[in-house]
């Protein structure tokens, strides 16, 4: 955080020590809009909100959240197992000994990210507002259990989580994907948005992909591209999904500046290289 006089400010400071101006309370209009607010109002108290908003604004936290939703699709129990990774990211951004309760600021952060995530989806897949509201509320019902304290013990069948995931998948189903090569994909378009975000969020990764394909023949380039995508897939999902890896390959190729026509031309061998048996050993 920076003051208008360019002084670097800590998140909990109320005044700029150099120009003595009070630090403007961050615009809290989101607070009232957030669907997470009424589930835990204390999380949106000014100081907690300031920390939560700061964390939610970090693209790495958002990318981790995307990963969370994806993982739950493949393994519903990740709803609880992945909590520690999310919390780990939270601690990347709050600095030493933050003067707020972790569960409060964390709930604020995850609520804000949730709102943003589904608002974006709603715009892309043209959901109606009632559709959006339904899926968001159902999501909040899940994370509410995982992160908030309740008076009573609660039992949740993992099939309920899987149900939610498949509902989200249904709402994301499209006839065509954003790229020409998408015609070979069988999960249009479950991954495109998340993958695009993950790639743009880690800009140096494209440099790594570039150096591994540069100066190679076409067939070697395809192999390297698929290898890169396969590694990334396994690291993101902790398992392998062919469509995900294919989507990753197309998106990386796009970022590498391959023309859509070239990707279209090469899509069959790319798809074949994403097939798990034909991947070169790590």
């Amino acid at each position: 955080m920076k003051c208008q006089c360019e002084t670097y400010l800590l998140l909990d400071w109320q005044y700029c020590p150099v120009c003595t101006a009070p630090v403007l309370i961050t615009d809290q209009s989101d607070e009232l809009k957030s669907r997470g607010f009424h589930r835990f109002p204390a999380a949106f108290a000014p100081l907690s909100y300031r920390f939560g908003k700061h964390v939610a604004d970090q693209s790495w936290f958002y990318a981790t959240f995307c990963q969370y939703v994806l993982l739950i699709k493949f393994d519903p129990t990740q709803l609880v197992y992945f909590r520690s990774t999310l919390l780990d990211r939270y601690f990347c951004f709050v600095g030493p000994n933050p003067p707020v309760a972790t569960n409060e600021a964390f709930w604020c952060a995850i609520s804000l990210v949730t709102d943003r995530y589904f608002r974006r989806r709603a715009a892309i897949y043209s959901w109606s507002s009632s559709q959006e509201q339904q899926i968001v509320e159902a999501w909040y019902d899940l994370i509410d259990l995982a992160f908030l304290v309740h008076e009573k013990n609660t039992v949740l069948e993992t099939s309920k989580i899987a149900e939610w995931s498949s509902r989200l998948d249904e709402m994301q189903t499209q006839e065509t994907g954003p790229h020409l090569a998408c015609q070979l994909c069988e999960s249009k378009c479950k991954y495109g948005e998340d993958i695009k975000f993950m790639i743009t969020n880690d800009p140096l990764a494209i440099g790594e992909a570039r150096s591994s394909v540069e100066g190679k023949s076409d067939s070697q380039q395809i192999e390297q591209l698929a290898w890169f995508a396969r590694l990334w897939t396994e690291r993101t999902l902790c398992l392998y999904d062919e469509d995900f890896a294919f989507c990753m390959s197309i998106n990386v190729a796009d970022r590498l500046g391959w023309s859509p026509e070239r990707v279209h031309q090469l899509m069959v061998p790319i798809r074949e290289s994403c097939h798990i048996d034909s991947c070169p050993e790590v």
Binding site: T77, A101, L145, N153, L156
Partner: peptide, 30 residues
């Protein structure tokens, strides 16, 4: 049993099919 600190619910994952969320500061009885 999986936990990430006392401010968050401790969860018992039963054979990957059931998640039991425990209210903190109470005996964990399922």
């Amino acid at each position: 049993y999986t936990a990430i600190g006392t401010s968050f619910p401790i969860v018992l994952v039963i054979e990957r099919e059931k998640l039991v969320f425990f209210a903190p500061h109470r005996p964990l009885e399922y």
